[in-house]
Write a protein that binds this DNA or RNA. Structure first.
Length: 425
RNA sequence: GGAGGGGUGGCCGAGUGGUUGAAGGCGGCGGUCUUGAAAACCGUUAGCCCGCAAGGGCUCGGGGGUUCGAAUCCCUCCCCCUCCGCCA
């Protein structure tokens, strides 16, 4: 969330952010409530002070045995308390309304981010390799995976319904091998600390990273316990340091985590749902950073490169685009998407989003740091990137490394993880 | 799931109704001493909200209640520990 003080001082910038990101948020109502709330608070504080002092006096009077004087004071306190209670009642409701509005205001985009729809204003910033040319007509991943017995789409759907995948044989091993390969790469080459978090989290944690309250319908919810299945490892991993004050010496903190991700994808039926392109449960390796505020933009570039390394090491052609305001998520200030080329499908697929959230998540989750021992705590900046999401990586991998006979060459770095040089029947 | 114990400041730990935002210790910071360091000694050391400021208010796991007054009493929820049961 944004700093309420910032919103007071820059309502124009906030309204503009809502507009260009296409998020409805009632800034004017928030500001009106804020004004009333501050007034009420001042009066309430005054009354509390009076009651506090009077109570202390009563204590003294009682000790001296001056009962009558004490009773008189009590009567006075009762009057103040009555007023205080009525103010507090209104205040509680107002505060709740304010918090709710505040949590629904999106982060402010960085100046470099272009305002407008994605198709027009996304901006390519980097490109690696070229679309691979074949001497034969390349198949798409569904044909390849079914031909080699890597995935059983039909039986997967039998288990979880459409959008749930059953990997079989080498397909299952490919999944596991890719996870291990990517985690090892980030740990060994990029100095990440590996963590393995819960896949189900509380409401509070979902609010910390910005999924709640706005996006409840996108997630699987265990109502009995009010627990939520994570849509990305970003959620538990960013919240590791919730309500903590870190030391500047600890920063940057870099975590890598494998988790499955669960997404209801309500309302997106019929769109891009063939094979592995859009599924309800998928595996992902995620990288998360906590940084000093002044280092976060530089860190975003590093983070993006770290994600790109995965694709490059596997010999996949991709392009990196900076998303326009309408493509970015609610909490992000700047996002790069990595889009990998899938020659059988003849199109690019998004396999990673690298985002800087500035202090937006840190403020919600109350993650702070101190520059020196006696310094005031400040909010850290949080960033994350997929490093990388599996299903679409598998699409690109199968389609890129396919041979004319329908078998798949395993890229060299992956061979130790699979124990084979090629995927065959 | 059942029984019991417990959650206090960066950490340990005292505190069972009255000026306690909280003793004491450790740690941190500043200083004295020292060629330097250590030791010793002195001082200092929570966060949040409102306010230009002066200042005021809130916070002892969360919420609610009793009371003139609650870290201290009551209710409720959460978390941790021990034992029993169940179980991968």
């Amino acid at each position: 969330m944004l700093d309420l003080k910032f919103i007071r001082d820059n309502p124009g910038a906030v309204r503009r952010a809502c507009q260009v990101k296409r998020h409805e948020a009632d800034v004017d109502r928030l500001l009106a409530l804020d004004r009333e709330w501050r007034e009420a608070t001042a009066r309430a504080d005054e009354l509390r002070g009076k009651i506090k002092r009077a109570s202390q006096e009563i204590g003294g009077l009682m000790k001296q045995g001056q009962r009558d004087a004490a009773e008189a004071q009590k009567a006075e306190v009762a009057v103040h308390k009555a007023e205080l209670e009525s103010i507090e009642k209104a205040e509680t409701g107002r505060r709740a309304a304010m918090d709710d509005l505040l949590l629904r205001i999106p982060n402010i985009p960085h100046e470099l981010v272009k305002a407008g729809p994605e198709e027009e204003f996304n901006e390519e910033v980097h490109r690696f390799g070229e679309p691979k040319q074949f001497a034969f007509e390349p198949k798409d991943h569904v044909a390849l995976a079914e031909g080699l017995g890597l995935i059983d789409f039909k039986r997967g759907a039998r288990l979880g319904g459409s959008g749930f995948i059953l990997y079989t044989g080498l397909g299952a091993r490919l999944e596991r091998g890719l996870i291990n390969y990517m985690i090892d790469l980030h740990v060994q080459r990029h100095s990440y600390t590996e963590v393995s978090p819960p896949f189900v989290v509380t409401r509070q944690v979902m609010t910390g990273t910005g999924q709640l309250p706005k996006f409840a319908e996108d997630m699987y919810h265990v109502t009995e316990d009010d627990l939520w299945l994570i849509p990305t490892a970003e959620v538990p991993v960013t919240n590791i340091h919730r309500d903590e004050i870190l030391s500047a010496d600890d920063l940057p903190i870099k975590y890598v985590a494998y988790t499955p991700c669960f997404r209801r994808e309500a309302g997106s039926y019929g769109k891009e749902v063939r094979g592995l392109t859009r599924v309800h449960q998928f595996d992902k390796v995620e990288i998360v950073n906590f940084t000093l505020p002044e280092k976060s933009w530089e860190q975003l570039d590093t983070l993006r490169r770290e994600a790109e390394t995965v694709l490059e090491s596997l010999g996949l052609h991709y392009r990196t685009v900076r998303l326009s305001t309408e493509g970015m998520t609610f909490a992000s200030a700047m996002t790069y998407d990595l889009e990998v080329w899938a020659p059988g499908s003849k199109r690019y697929y998004e396999v990673s989003s690298a985002s800087c959230f500035t202090d937006f998540q840190a403020r919600r989750a109350n993650i702070r740091f101190r520059r020196q021992a006696e310094a005031k705590p400040e909010f850290v900046h949080t960033l994350n990137a997929s490093g990388v999401a599996l299903p679409r990586l598998v699409i690109a991998l199968l389609e890129t490394w396919q041979r004319a006979d329908g078998t798949i060459e395993v890229p060299a770095p992956l061979r130790p993880y699979l124990g084979v040089d090629s995927l065959t029947r």
